[in-house]
Design a protein around this nucleic acid. Structure first.
Length: 466
RNA sequence: GGUGCCAUCGCCAAGUGGUAAGGCCGUAGCCUGCAAAGCUACUAUCCCCAGUUCAAAUCUGGGUGGCACCUCCA
């Protein structure tokens, strides 16, 4: 297994901290709004990573947090006159449902900020005691960046004097403009939590460090976790700050490997609220099967920026369709787990920093050759066994082809329409038997009007939604 | 302004020194009553310039053109 470490900026052989085991922590969503394609991309990338690690025989513990304490959540609750928990529960639940629709498995551990406050307090206290943090007379607690000689080494940033001057005005109580809040005193009567440092709310960066320490870290390892992942934008300041907190409050560095996934742009533009072009997952799921979105968002390398275009999405559907068509050809045959060269190569490609493009090339070559042999030698038993085994492996590692192939092609069709199509198809088959091609073609046109396509095969006639 | 990334066929996209994967689209053909699906064949020398090397899309230098982060963000 090779992983590109976005801090060391090179592909490195993956060596776990503890033999045979991997701990993975990924920054999860702040639950104040619907998940967009960017959340989906990140979740998919690390879902794939866990599958590949497992396929390599590693025992993976995957944690992804839910940030349920945040100013934006409070703002939304006030705006909608709802309880905070009502908001966070709602968006946490929809996040889970939508992730499940695109085949993302739940992490092993999903800590919430609200349930990890004690771990945060402990970390703050340790940092204060060791001189890495200080409380202001306003009741805020800041991390003292000057106290950490390794600060900014993670994101390879240099302190810029002019830059620092500009930010001074905003926070006069800080010793240093780069210092960031771990505990923010809140006195406006909105939601606060009791803490040894007074009433207030925790800083965002603190959350992840504390949760990692609580749920994943081992006392005797040089790093708290094997792999820390997240979106590319998180490297600075979020991960830089997390790393500083962990480094200064414990005996280990935060992560042995850092992985950052590229951004999703919409038609060449960054997705953002101000541009009004946020593409929500729930809207995409109305148009496309979740697996098509999964395929599409995973079809290019995870580190590249991803430019979402609906034309490309329909190409992704065409490619996924091919997997399902082969599944249809082999439908009903017994499952098995034959060892094949294809599987070895597929895992090899994915184990190389998740080279999905190479993996897809292997898959499409496998599909072509399987179809070719099935075309010419329909009773090739060994080939069928191997192909079924290959398809099962694609399902397991990539999560492509997990559905019933017939149902997959009926996405979004209601039962009435399906019944009508079935009736028309029966009439058409009858006309065909009588060699009344004029009538059968007329019926086909009628069926096509439902937005489906027809396929006459040796096993009968099938329809697929276009 | 600082830091970093990228530039491969009409489109999407692999490939980090050894002579350009794969997909979409297109063309021709096989199959089919006709289609659809499937299969076969064909389609690029890698932004520009200079250099290193027996050998470069891949390394170095210089251009040009995109993009990201530096503020909450996956």
């Amino acid at each position: 297994m090779f992983i590109y470490d976005s801090v060391q900026k090179e592909k490195r052989k993956f060596i776990p901290l503890r033999e045979g085991k991997v701990s993975l922590y990924v920054c999860g969503p702040t639950v104040y709004d619907d998940a967009h394609l960017g959340h989906a991309k990140s979740a998919l990338v690390f879902d794939l990573l866990t599958r590949v690690l497992k396929a390599n025989g590693l025992d993976v513990t995957y944690a992804r947090n839910i940030t349920d304490i945040d100013d934006k959540i409070i703002k939304k609750a006030i705006a909608q006159n709802k309880d905070i928990k009502e908001i966070t529960d709602y968006y946490t639940d929809s996040f889970h449902k939508e992730m499940s629709a695109i085949g993302v498995s739940r992490p092993d551990i999903e800590p919430k900020a609200t349930e990890s406050l004690n771990a945060m307090f402990e970390m703050i206290q340790k940092l204060i005691d060791s001189g890495h943090a200080y409380a202001t007379k306003d009741g805020d607690v800041y991390f003292d960046t000057a106290s950490d000689s390794a600060y900014l080494t993670l994101s390879s940033r240099v302190q810029d004097d002019e830059d620092r001057q500009e930010r001074v005005a905003s926070s006069s109580m800080k010793k240093n403009p780069a210092d960031f809040a771990m505990w923010k005193s809140v006195k406006d009567g909105s939601l606060t939590y009791e803490s040894p440092f007074g009433l207030g709310r925790p800083g965002w960066h603190l959350e992840c460090s504390a949760m990692i320490e609580k749920h994943l870290a081992q006392a005797d390892t040089a790093f708290a976790v094997d792999i820390h992942g997240g979106g590319a934008d998180l490297l600075f300041p979020h991960h830089e700050n997390e790393a500083a907190q962990t480094r200064c409050s414990s005996k280990h560095e935060l992560a042995s490997y850092w992985m950052h996934n590229g951004f999703v742009n919409i038609n060449g533009e960054k997705m953002s609220k101000s541009l009004g072009n946020s593409f929500f997952l729930k809207d995409a799921l109305k148009e496309y099967d979740g697996e098509v979105l999964r395929f599409y968002l995973l079809s290019t390398h995870y580190r590249s920026n991803f430019n979402f275009k609906s034309e490309d999405l329909s190409i992704a559907k065409k490619r996924l369709d091919k997997i399902y068509r082969l599944k249809k050809r082999l439908f009903g045959l017994a499952q098995n787990s034959e060892a094949t060269e294809f599987k070895t190569k597929l895992l090899e490609a994915l184990s190389d920093d998740m080279n999905v493009s190479s993996a897809l090339a292997l898959i499409e070559e496998m599909l072509s050759s399987a179809n070719e042999i099935l075309d010419t030698a329909g009773k090739h038993k060994l080939l069928k066994r191997e192909t079924i085994s290959n398809l099962a492996y694609i399902e397991e590692i990539l999560g492509f082809g997990v559905k019933n192939p017939f149902e997959y092609f009926q996405f979004g069709m209601d039962q009435d329409t399906k019944d009508t199509i079935a009736t028309l198809m029966e009439k058409r088959s009858e006309a065909k038997r009588e060699k009344n091609f004029e009538e059968s073609d007329r019926l086909r046109d009628e069926i096509l009007a439902f937005g489906v396509t027809l396929m006459d095969t040796p096993a009968g006639t099938f329809w697929e939604k276009v």
